[in-house]
């Protein structure tokens, strides 16, 4: 533990990141630029989320990391180990026990409570990026609330597929002003963004942006009047715990077309199995 400063970053850097977080919380949905640091992992592995977590962690915190809902994949395991070694904080896989949760591409099924912080890893923070490549122009569009272009993307979806086919990173409008990219969470999770009791922080390391949603913020998914937003999921129960209301991963189990659907949130699934729930594929 003496080898590193608490939570890896030096205090000046944490101060800089905390200032960006506070500004982000003060202006929900606004992308605050910050001086992203080189981290001991490649871009795309969650350098933004790690920096935000490092800035908010205290020695008393209990830390949880999920990757696509799972606690036991490479990304989750390595980031959890990173903070065990550099911050010495206690870690957990239980959503209810954690005070800080770093996540990649999911919101836990278990509703979060006041006092918890959810930190998202964000690859591309700018929702307008693929529609308008000029950063100078997108900033102007954000400040003047010119978001017609965002609907052009949804229009293109409907004209090509007959429905809004965007299924992840679905754009949302925050408190009637900023349009925000919620990071690549499935649109199934979009309704949980709004009115959440926990603090939500978004960190994009390569793009050097931090944005935030304070508790109980109004978040609306964009849509058309005649093609309303729909939070979709695979139409199956979980094969292991039988849950009907959780987001599912499709797992190929053999080379003869066999497949099963399981909860992407492993903690939720395990808790249900421990409580005696069984799905049809449970061993």
């Amino acid at each position: 533990m003496t080898d590193y400063n608490f939570a890896y970053l030096d205090e000046q850097t944490k101060r800089m990141i905390r200032r960006a977080i506070l500004k982000g919380l003060a202006i929900p949905g606004y992308q605050v630029p910050f001086a992203s640091r080189e981290m001991p992992m490649p871009y795309g592995w969650g350098t933004g989320g790690v920096q935000v977590s490092a800035a908010v962690l205290t020695p008393e915190d209990r830390f949880k990391v999920i990757d696509q809902g799972a606690d036991d994949t490479t990304n989750a395991v390595s980031i959890r180990t990173f903070f065990e070694r550099t911050a010495g904080v206690k870690t957990t896989t239980k959503t209810t026990d954690a005070s800080v949760i770093q996540t990649r591409h999911r919101i836990p099924e278990e509703p979060l409570t006041e006092g918890q912080i959810l930190v998202y890893q964000v690859p591309i923070p700018e929702p307008l990026r693929f529609l308008e490549p000029r950063e100078s122009e997108t900033r102007k569009m954000h400040s003047l609330e010119e978001y017609g272009l965002m609907h052009v993307k949804l229009y293109e979806d409907i004209s090509r597929h007959g429905h809004i086919a965007t299924s992840y990173a679905y754009p949302v409008k925050v408190e009637g002003h900023y349009v925000m990219d919620p990071s690549p969470i499935p649109k199934f999770d979009n309704p949980k963004l709004g009115d959440m009791a926990a603090i939500q922080l978004f960190g994009a390391g390569r793009e050097q942006r931090i944005y935030a949603l304070p508790p109980y913020t109004e978040v609306v998914s964009l849509d058309f009047d005649d093609h309303p937003f729909e939070a979709s999921k695979a139409d199956h129960p979980c094969g292991l715990c039988g849950a009907e209301d959780s987001y599912l991963d499709e797992v190929i189990v053999d080379d003869a077309g066999g497949r099963m659907f399981v909860c992407s949130d492993t903690d939720y699934c395990e808790a249900r199995q421990a409580a005696g729930h069984r799905g049809k594929d449970a061993a």
Binding site: L131, G148, V152, Y155, E156, I158, F224, D225
Partner: peptide, 23 residues
Amino acid sequence: RMGVSAGGNVGERLMAVGARRYG
């Protein structure tokens, strides 16, 4: 916008001034 269909190109100004019915 060369990456957007003809309909999307024509519709952009409508959506920019608040049209929200796809039909």
